[in-house]
Design a protein around this nucleic acid. Structure first.
Length: 842
RNA sequence: GCCGCGGUGGUGGAAUGGUAUACACGCAGGACUUAAAAUCCUGUGGUUGAAUAAACCUUGUGGGUUCGAGUCCCACUCGCGGCACCA
């Protein structure tokens, strides 16, 4: 009676092979916007370390969804590719003296095999790698598109420089003042670099977050990163010693125009002061020294001194445009050069930093805003005044005082009115600032897509002609980092440029940030072999936008922002008719080691998914990882629990092979009811990505099925297997074909294979089961009886009765135990929830 | 400092305002076995109790709303995450 024992290796490799031969997961024909479903797991970086359990989590979660959608009649596109350029491969190459292409391709082969061993239903004919010329040709094309549209430019400015990686990094790649990749302290250097004007899209990137289904937290963080703030830019005329008053001016940005009557000084950043010095300002030696010292410090060092503000009086005065008051101008490094205009109006009564500064240098403090309460009644007035003396800062909105015509106005209104008036008098304009800066995209490294630009003999820039793309990354390069781009030294790279463009012409030698490659990869999958376009119009119309995107939280302020930016530029250029790439996005949580630490070699707690697949099977690995907890949550590994999942699968394996259990004439009644209930709940949970609770339901069902006397008919067994198929695709396929009788021999000897295949229809192409509404209704319902809100008894009542208040209460009151609790008490109130509960209030 | 999220058995975790602790792990006892492993069965929040009698307590702490709160509100606390001299 016991069938074969569960040999996961045999089953899994067999079916993986058949599925591949049958091209089971190739993207189907007849795709329309209505029936398509585009599932996108985040683009992996093929590290030499191999697949991580976190990768397995992402691919399994996507794969379950893909299989579920497929069985529900959707035409599914599920794809994988490689984010193959980048520093680790290059660093490895330097260390071991092999070309990065070699170790990258090796890593990709390894990743591909590992992913295949998990039984992920990917259409491998669409695989892409960002390091292949037919891919980066289009990365370069995108760069040219940005250039044409005035969105790519060169600029000399302070950049983040990683002394270890010897390259520039984007703001998004600097974490805590350290390099995201190697954790080296970042230096600031003045360099000429390529930038993409993402700031031009800041508003749309901000506003359109409201129209996509993304995690709330992610949307919040992106908004915070964009850092949109509305305010005003104000011009203060300056009085410089030895110069005519009003000849010079300084602009400041503020979100608190309502506090302008409280200005008692103006502070400029060292950067702004430097500019003044550069145009001939005769400042004191003290000022010059302060500016020089400040500028030699990194932003990080400057911020470290946040608690103790320093500054120097410049002997310049600024004239407050609202009341012509003359206030001193200071230079201080608490004002940052790259925020707003690099200069602020000092309102010490209503800004913490200005307050601190004023205290230190004995500058006057002038209260111009009082809490709302103060204007309402006399008693609170004193309290309020006590709170906002010159000893305490009041930074909230309130009511204006000491502000001329604006006295008595609430802050909000005052801001509008002052701005209106100021605009008429020409001393302020409405202005929005952003925390987001333009995206620095040039890298002084080898292993990336060359920037498709050339310089003529006078050093002037020209774009490479589109028909000349790709600009091939040469093979003959000494890629050891020197701080100069390695491509500088490649003869092969510069060869032909003069022929093509003219004598003395040279190529740009920097390469593109790899985030450029990953900003558009989801388009390439749609049409991966097209050499006329990054993707055909038809393919774009059919498949986009992505219906489900799963990726890590670490990409919130980098990749996800860049990808949205790319999409908006494509939209503006008329290539697509939507302007958000990912309709639904979710994050997977991190899988931690058994010791609750992040997995790392250092802790010796790394779990290798391939070991798990080897030992317990892909189906066990998949089901376990999904059973650990909610997808988006961090979870720690527990090897005992893996074995528990394996046990669960083996039980099913044995049950289905037991004909009395799985091929009975009819299903036992309780089990059949539970099956229908299970169909309902598993369908809901799977749709809502609550895989962990769906699996719990499968276990509950299996527990009942194992009981003596419980049995399933063949059809009901098939239904159960179909439900489980997305989760454990190999085992369910094997069992399904077996009970269908499609497999004469489980081992498919080559000669018999054709015959078997003829009648073979994969379980993964079957339709998702439906349930019978009548069968999920129980005959009996459990009514909970409470007395004063405490549960005292539960009673089983006929389904129809349970809906009727009078009948239920009558029935309940006959119960001995309930009687005891109600004895000698007056029922004040009876609460009745139909089909659920009775609560007596006594 | 500001903003956000969270705190449920020994552990991972379940619970549209209606039986808190589903499911799993672990543990304990039992069956099978010469024995062990595997498998199966039973039990398992806490306190009192001989009890599979009964009672009380229990979702970080304290209050509130409600017939009824893990769930809603307020305060506190601890933990995690994001941002941070952003004007």
């Amino acid at each position: 009676m016991k069938g074969n024992s569960y040999d996961h290796k045999k089953i899994e490799s067999k079916w993986q092979k058949i599925w591949e031969e049958q091209k089971l997961y190739q993207t189907p024909e007849g795709v329309t916007q209505k029936n398509k479903f585009y599932i996108l797991p985040q683009l992996p970086y093929p590290s030499g370390e191999g697949l991580h359990v976190g990768h397995a989590e992402v691919y399994t979660a996507c794969d379950i969804y893909a299989r579920f959608q497929r069985m529900n009649g959707k035409k599914v596109l599920q794809v994988i590719g490689w984010d193959a350029f980048g520093l680790p491969a290059e660093n490895f190459a330097i260390k071991n003296n092999v070309h990065p292409r070699i170790n990258t391709n090796k890593a990709i082969d390894n990743f591909r095999n590992q992913i295949k061993s998990l039984g992920i239903s990917v259409d491998w004919s669409r695989e892409v790698g960002s390091h292949n010329p037919d891919y980066y040709k289009w990365t370069q094309w995108f760069f040219l598109l940005f250039y044409e549209r005035g969105l790519a430019y060169r600029k000399k400015q302070k950049v983040n420089w990683c002394p270890s990686c010897k390259t520039v990094l984007a703001n998004e790649q600097v974490v805590d003042g350290k390099c995201e990749r190697c954790a080296t302290e970042i230096e600031q250097r003045e360099m000429e670099q390529w930038y993409l004007k993402i700031t031009e899209y800041a508003d749309r990137l901000y506003d359109d977050l409201d129209k996509i289904d993304w995690p709330k937290e992610t949307i919040r963080r992106q908004k915070e990163w964009i850092g949109k703030k509305k305010g005003a830019e104000i011009t203060f005329n300056l009085s410089v010693p030895g110069q005519k008053e009003g000849k010079h001016g300084v602009n400041v940005f503020t979100t608190r125009l309502d506090t302008i009557f409280g200005v008692t000084f103006v502070t400029v950043s060292p950067e702004v002061a430097k500019k003044w010095l550069d145009v001939g300002w005769q400042a004191t030696d003290e000022v010059k020294k302060y500016v020089e010292d400040s500028l030699s410090r990194t932003d990080k060092e400057r911020m470290a001194g946040a608690g103790d503000k320093t500054g120097v009086f410049t002997e310049v005065y600024a004239i407050n445009p609202v009341n012509q008051e003359k206030v001193p101008v200071w230079v201080a490094d608490y004002v940052l050069g790259d925020v707003g205009t690099g200069a602020v109006m000092g309102v010490p009564a209503h800004d913490e930093r200005d307050f601190e500064f004023a205290k230190k240098y004995n500058l006057p403090i002038k209260v111009v805003v009082m809490p709302f309460m103060a204007s309402k009644n006399e008693k609170n007035y004193q309290d309020a005044m006590n709170r906002i003396t010159t000893e305490k800062v009041f930074t909230e909105d309130g009511v204006l005082v000491n502000s001329g015509n604006y006295d008595g106005l609430p802050s909000e209104e005052a801001r509008k009115k002052i701005l209106d008036d100021a605009q008429k008098d020409n001393w302020a304009t409405e202005k929005t600032t952003y925390h987001l800066h333009d995206w620095s995209v040039s890298r002084q490294r080898f292993w990336g897509a060359p920037i498709p630009m050339v310089y003529d003999d006078r050093g002037k820039l020209h774009p490479v002609k589109k028909e000349d793309l790709p600009v091939i990354l040469p093979e003959d390069v000494d890629f050891k980092p020197t701080g100069q781009s390695p491509l500088t030294y490649s003869d092969l790279f510069q060869k032909g440029v003069e022929e093509k463009y003219g004598k003395g012409w040279k190529r740009e030698v920097d390469t593109l940030d790899t985030f450029m490659c990953s900003s558009w990869y989801y388009y390439r999958y749609l049409d991966p072999h097209n050499d006329q376009a990054f993707a055909s119009e038809e393919a774009l119309k059919k498949w986009m936008p992505v219906d489900f995107y799963l990726g890590g939280v670490e990409h919130v302020n980098g990749h996800l922002l860049y990808a949205r930016f790319f999409t908006k530029v494509l939209y503006d250029a008329g290539y697509i008719n939507f302007d958000e790439p990912f309709s639904v996005h979710r994050h997977q949580g991190t899988i931690l080691g058994p010791d609750n630490h992040r997995m790392s070699k250092r802790w010796g707690n790394v779990i290798n998914p391939t070991d798990v697949v080897e030992k317990y099977g892909a189906d066990t690995a998949r089901v376990y990882e999904m059973f650990m907890g909610p997808l988006e949550q961090d979870k720690s590994w527990n090897d005992n629990a893996v074995q528990g999942v394996r046990r669960f699968l083996v039980r099913i394996w044995n049950l289905v092979q037991d004909e009395k259990k799985s091929l009975a004439d009819t299903s036992s009644e309780t089990l059949q009811r539970l099956l229908h209930k299970t169909v309902q709940i598993v369908s809901d949970d799977t749709k809502n990505l609550k895989y962990n609770t769906a699996i719990a339901r499968f276990m509950e069902f299996t527990n009942l099925w194992m009981r003596q006397g419980e049995q399933l008919s063949k059809d009901d067994t098939k239904t159960f297997l179909k439900l489980l198929a997305p989760y454990a695709p190999h085992m369910t396929e094997e069992l399904y074909q077996k009970i269908k009788g499609s497999l004469a021999k489980p081992d498919l000897a080559p000669r018999e294979k054709d015959q078997v295949i003829k009648e073979y229809k994969s379980i993964h192409l079957e339709s998702w089961p439906s349930y019978d509404e009548k069968l999920i209704q129980e005959d009996n319902v459990t009514i909970v009886v409470q007395v004063n809100g405490k549960v005292r008894q539960t009673l089983d009542v006929r389904h129809q009765t349970a809906e009727n208040k009078v009948e239920v209460i009558a029935l309940v009151q006959q119960d001995e135990k309930v009687k005891k609790y109600l004895e000698g008490k007056q029922i004040k109130q009876e609460i009745f929830v139909p089909g659920k509960l009775v609560n007596f209030v006594v």
